[in-house]
Amino acid sequence: MQEDKHVITMLVDNEPGVLSRVVGLFSGRGFNIESLCVAETVTPGISRITIVTKANPPVVEQIEKQLNKLINVIKVRDLTREASVMREMALICVRASPEHRAEILRIVDIFRCKVIDVGLEHYIIEVTGDEGKMTALLNLLRPMGIKKIARTGTIALLREPK
């Protein structure tokens, strides 16, 4: 059966151990995690976890149900086919030799990224966007030499009604 990417977002009680309950559920049942983000919401005591997973339809159904079954999980939603916005962020440290410096800055400009650290041999670039943008940018920067990278994984929100 076809495995598709799903972005699952959930509100959870902000208590010690909640993240390990969620992660333990995935590892214990053999579900896959491609990325995971967690941080507090504006409501005290409630956090949002966003997980990107790859699974076929029956497994996704199980993932949602199993998450809902956890006592500390308040609400679960699969945003994949919903009207939603999704972003991830990356900090990319790229080798910046004299012959590439201008080219890198042009790419940064085209992709509307920011250079947040400069050295004789490198730039650190901050970029936010969806997965497609990340891939495109990385493909362009790779020939210059990517020294280090830190990515956040996807966060997502349902769009409000217009």
Binding site: P16, G17, S20, R21, G24, L25, G28, I71
Partner: peptide
């Protein structure tokens, strides 16, 4: 023990 029994309890507390 809360860590150990997390996957085999309905819920657990410290």
């Amino acid at each position: 023990i809360v860590g150990i029994t997390r996957p085999c309890t309905k819920h657990n507390y410290l």
